[in-house]
Structure formats: C-alpha cells, structure tokens
Design a protein around this nucleic acid. Sequence first.
DNA 1: CCTTTTATTTCGAGGCTCGAAAAAAATAGT
DNA 2: ACTATTTTTTTCGAGCCTCGAAATAAAAGG
Lengths: 412, 412
Amino acid sequence: MAGAIARSDDVRRQNRKLVLTAVRRRGALSRTDITAMTGLSASTVSAIVAGLVSEGVLLESRDSGATRRGRPQVSLMPNPDIAKVGVVNLSLNSLTVALVDYAGGTIAKQTAEFPTWPATGVGLVAEISTMLRSQLQSSAGSGGRLMRISMSVQGVTDAAGETMRWAPIIRERDIGFGPALRRGFGVPVSLANDCAMLAEALRWTDPAHYGGDFAAIMLSYGIGMGLYLKGQPFSGSHSSAAEFGHMAHIPYGAACRCGRRGCIEAYAGDYAIWRNAMGMPDTAPPPFNIDANVFAELAERAREAAGIERAAFHTAGRAIGFGLNNLFSLIDPVPIALVGPGARVFDLIEPEIRNAISGTAGWDGAQALTIRCYPEEHPLLLQGCAMTSLLHLDADVFSGNEARGLSQTSAA
Amino acid sequence: MAGAIARSDDVRRQNRKLVLTAVRRRGALSRTDITAMTGLSASTVSAIVAGLVSEGVLLESRDSGATRRGRPQVSLMPNPDIAKVGVVNLSLNSLTVALVDYAGGTIAKQTAEFPTWPATGVGLVAEISTMLRSQLQSSAGSGGRLMRISMSVQGVTDAAGETMRWAPIIRERDIGFGPALRRGFGVPVSLANDCAMLAEALRWTDPAHYGGDFAAIMLSYGIGMGLYLKGQPFSGSHSSAAEFGHMAHIPYGAACRCGRRGCIEAYAGDYAIWRNAMGMPDTAPPPFNIDANVFAELAERAREAAGIERAAFHTAGRAIGFGLNNLFSLIDPVPIALVGPGARVFDLIEPEIRNAISGTAGWDGAQALTIRCYPEEHPLLLQGCAMTSLLHLDADVFSGNEARGLSQTSAA
DNA sequence: CCTTTTATTTCGAGGCTCGAAAAAAATAGT
DNA sequence: ACTATTTTTTTCGAGCCTCGAAATAAAAGG
C-alpha cells in the first residue's frame, strides 16, 4: 500500500537519475553546471559523474576554447556509443523503423508503405524485424548494443505496453508486438498508443508550454488523444485509454467505425466529415480511407462558400468542442495540441469548437482555451518514441544496478 | 523537472512513514509484525520505533495475555493523545463538525441544521469556529493539540484545497474556508470536494475492492464524483474537477442548475427526476430542493407501475450510463460506488445504466461493470475527512522533521 | 532452576551526502 | 619566465542510515 522501503543506494540511484536527465536535457553540461542545476553538492556530483564516466554512460570532452580565467570546465554528454534504441511506428498504410543512439542521434530510418488493413501480426513483426536487423547490421561498427525498442501504434494497447488490443487500421486484433519483438531481439520492448508518444514529444520539445497538464489530440484517420496529468503520462489501468474520439457525442447517433454509435469520431473523423459533406446519412457504414486530396478539396470548397461542406466541418467542430467540454469537466481545462491532417483545417472547425465550449460555459465562465496546431505528426511520433526509450534508459537502467558491470568500455 | 535530490534522511523519513502507515492500518502491531509487513530489518524497525515512541507518536502496550512461549511481543499503536484533527462537512442545509484523536477515535461530533443557500462565508466560518472551539474546550484535558483541519464541501474547490469556488448549495462564491480557518486555529487546513472524501473513506474501509482505480459517485442534491487512479486521489490542476454530473449528455439539452444545458445532472439529479416525473418541460428552471419524502413517493409510484415516474428514472439511468461510458472511454472501466439517496433507487435506474453501457459496447465488448451502493453518505464523508488528515499527519508530519522537538510527552 | 523459544537491542560494516580543504588547470600581470 | 589569481574538480572526515550477526531480554516448559 504505502510503497517500498528505502535503502542507502536508492539515494544514489535517484541522484544519478537527476544528473543523467539534467545532462540529457541540456545536451552537454560541466560538473559545475550539474551542481547548479540539481542542487547536489560538488563532491556528490564529482562522485556520481566519475561513476557514470567509468561506466561509459557519459563522455568527457574538454572543449579547448577556454577564454575565461581559471580551470576550464569539462563538458559531459551522453555517450552515443553506449546504447542504441529501436523506434517503430505503425500508422495507416505506413510502417517506419528507425535506430537512434544514446545521445539521441538518428542512425538510420526507413519507411515501408503497404496496406495495413489486411496485414497480420506475424507479417508485421517479420517486416519490422527485417528492417531493424538490416539497420543494426549497417551500423554494427559504432558499438553500443540495442538496449530497448519503443513502438507506437494507431490503436489501443494494453496497460503493460505488450499487446495491441485493437486498431482501426488492422483487421487482426490482440497482436502481441511486445513479446514477439522481445523474443526476436532480446531487449525490453514498450508498445504505446501513438498519441501518447505525441504528448511525450511535445512535452520534451516545448516544456515551457507543455510542462504542466495538457492534451495532444490527433485528428486524422481516427481521433486519438495523449494526456499528461500531474507531470505523468496518463493511461488507463487496463489499456492505453484516453479514447477521446470514442466518447459519446450524441446518444445513439452516427455510426462509428468502432462499431458503436454517436462517438465524437463519427462526427469529426475524416471519414465522418466526408460522409456528411457528401450528404450521406450518418448511419451509413463508415468508408475505409479518405484520400488526402479528396479531403483537401472538401476543405477548399468549405472555405469558398457556405454549403454542405462547410456544415460538415462545423459539425465536426461542434463534436470536438463538446468532447473537450466533457474532458474539461473531468480534468479541468488544459492546453490543447491539435496534431495531424486535421490541424490543416483548423480554421474551418475552430469557430464551432470555441462555440461549443463557451456557449455552454457555466460556473467557471468561458475559460481561455489555448490550442496549437501541428500538421505533421510523423516527426513527433518518432521523437516521442525515441525520447521515452532514452529517458527510460536514463532513469531506470543507467541509474540503477542493471548497468553495473556490463560495460568495460573505458576506464581511467 | 526530474524532482528533488535525495539525502540520507529522506531514507529515514520514507521508512518512518512506512512504519506509521502499517501501524495505522492494523491498529496495533509489534515490532516483529512491522518487520514482516514492511520488509525492513529488525534493527531498523527497532531504531525507528524507538524514535517514534520517545517522541510520543506511538504508544507501547504489553498486553499481558502471553500464552505462547518466548519473549512476548510489545504492541505499538498510535498515541491518541499526541494530536487531534478537526473534521468539517458542509452539505445542503447541514453542517457537521467533529473532533478526532490521532488514533482515529471520535472525541466529539455536532451537527447544525440551517438553510445553507442564503448563508455567507463569514457566517459559516464563525459557526464552524464556535462549534469546533467548544469541542476543543470540553476535551482540553485529554492532551494533544489540534494539528489539522479537514473540511469537505458539496461543491468545487480549488486545487490547493484553500477556497470553495462554487457550490450548488450556497449562493455566495469563492469562499476562502481554508485561509479563514487557518487564521482562526493556527493549523493547516485542507478543503476538498465531498466526493473525494467519499473515495478516501471507501478506499480505507475496503481496500480489497477499492485498492485499484475506482470511482465514487454521489447521487443526491447534485451529482458528484471522487476518483482514485493509480493509487492516487484524482484532482484537476486548478480545481477539484471530476465533475461527472456536468459532462454534457445531450448537447443544448435540459436546463441544469449550473447554468449550462444538457448536463448529466439535468437528467439524473433529484430535481431533474422530479421535473420529468411531473411532466414539466426540461427547460424549466430547476427547482431548488426536493423533499426526501416527495422523492421517495416518486420512487414508490415508479416501482408500482409503468408511467411517467418510471420513465423519469429510466431517463436518469440512461444519462448516468452514457456518462459512465464517456468516463470509461477516458480512464478505462473501473468499479463504481454509488453513494447517497440515489443509491436507494438503484433498482429503478440500474437497467438503463447497464443498457446504455452494453448497448453501445464497441471493440472491447460489454465490460463486466461492478456497482456497489451506499445509501448513507454522511458517515463516509466524515471518515474520509478524518482519514486524510490522519494519514497526512503520518506521512508528512510525524515522518518528517516537523515532529522533532515539539513533543516532550514521554521519555524512557 | 535450567532449557528452549521468541522478541528486541546492540554493534560494527558499508553506503551515501555534505562542507571544508586541497589539488588541478587555466589566465593575468610583472 | 614565473608568480598570483581565479575557477573547477577531487579528496577527506563527519554524520546519517540500513543491514546482518551476535548479544540480550523475557517469557513458558520441564
């Protein structure tokens, strides 16, 4: 109930973690800088850094350009060659695999395009393995073994980060990507919902704006959400949860691709907007895939003149607005990041979003709602995956006992 | 970003906390028991307990009835006379103040009944102060100074637990109960939403069922919710949040007491059920207070025969069901506790609740939904307040430095 | 009264952080 | 060229804390 007992080395673990995350955040830091940033004493920093350097986790570099008086600072940075992490993203009809070094540099990156709907778990794992193995082959010289794989999917995963329970982009269900890749590569694998990775990336790149609670909402083939609450990524007890797109907007309303009815996605997903813009009944079975050009044309017509297209986008905005309203009822208003193709039509949906929220404002008045848009989701996805893996290595592997003795790289 | 640095005494603090919460959970424990429960070594337990006993936090009692062989165990228990906490609950037309000792025993309890709607913050603080002061007077002999006050209100509080921002039961807004009582009594005060305290009480009394994530929903004058997620009480970044009753059920729907429209409460609150049962339009301004007898009669008629009353309860059930559906979309399905008067009509609303959930079940199938009912909310509310205060004393006061030197009570 | 059994305390050993002092490594000045 | 100054980093002892082993305490059994 109350947690674990504390020992003397837990203190060291925690402080090592502090040092490592400080160095990662700033890229390169001297011992003096670390002392200032962490609040640890100079002697403690000295001891901790000495350990990390002798283990090969950190690299010293005396950047000669000494101009000030006094003993020059020695820069410390993550040693790129101490470890590699694999990054995998599975989106609609697109599989990306990348290899990243411990310093965060991209070693290799490849994307394969193919229809994902008929793909099988076995086939996908094989494809991922082939791609990742070839990347490992070509970069074999640089040292640093693969220590972790982080994969994100456009779908619902279990809370343990092992299996993908359901995804709108694949027919097959319950695909155990985690165990399969772990068996294949012999390293820990974490599987996550793609929007959770979006949130990770945003928080890492813009901590000033996304340092507190916030929500990253992806508007594309489906509608997903990644949440950060109280400094922690949010997930359910059994699944990745945070299924913003499948909250009920209209009870027993439009047919959703998830099989239920009245979901937000059934009004605001790209297929829903298309369905409404074509004047089809909203009980019509959702079409599978909306071509990007078709969708762009829809937006163009909506911008040009009032009509059924514009109404469709307004309907979408209203659904999202009411969804945010419900979300805010539960977790308080938070900054919103809108990511993906939907961010490109933000001008068309924003008015109704704000309308739905302020039009129903109650005791707390119309909250100032900040929304930022990020049309390109892919770079964020990959960065999110890479960062979670690297931060995990920092916090749980190189801070703890696991690292002791597995690196004979360098010794003073 | 990554948190605070760890020092040697943080270890001791953490382990003291472990010992204290173990003792509180079981009421009385020997050093050997503590060793077994916490996993600490016997020597560490000995050292920690020695400190706690000499500070007067724990009390030794050799319960003579030694029947086994060997040196008898010495029982340790919280010393009731080391501290007192004040407990305050403000509900519709009812103010309860109680005094609880450090062992959890109720020293005094008083309830005042008066119309809360026209009451003022100043008046309420005065009333609370008078009641609490008289209780402190009469129990002056027992030693142990007041160390904390925990107050719960049927309304929205700020995240800091200082002020009540809005409540359906009082006209006045932004009442700073926290600062006012702190000034008056010179002790820390925590103000919380009443449903959060319900959740605390349920978790404490039934950890087997409520040890994981769960939601406590109160159905009475309003509809509120207390959430536990990942072993932590949930609250928003700015307010107590978790406003289940004010999620939108029907966009632009029935008039809610909060000023908005279409809220769940506007269909499932007692006033909404009454409004529907009387055949009034749901845009009619919500009546203020539904008499318990009137409501009971409504339920009776609904049970007797199909008709407008029964339909009203069904509507309420559907609103709650869709609300749960939305909640579960965000946080995964969790066990539900239904508390308060609404729990007495659970038979009338349950079918539609389950219908709304299973009827819209999508990819994850109809989840087994467990709902337990607790018609009496008041005992739970007071217990929740008392426990949060006591646990806070355990975890943050008597574990840490604050306690050192302030008690000269007993010394071996 | 001695033995057995169980509970608790005592006593180094080994970690960890910290402040103060020492050492290291550069520039500035003469 | 050489010393003084300045800044960074390391070294060293003090003070906590936990732990295992051994010692002590306090009962029942025989």
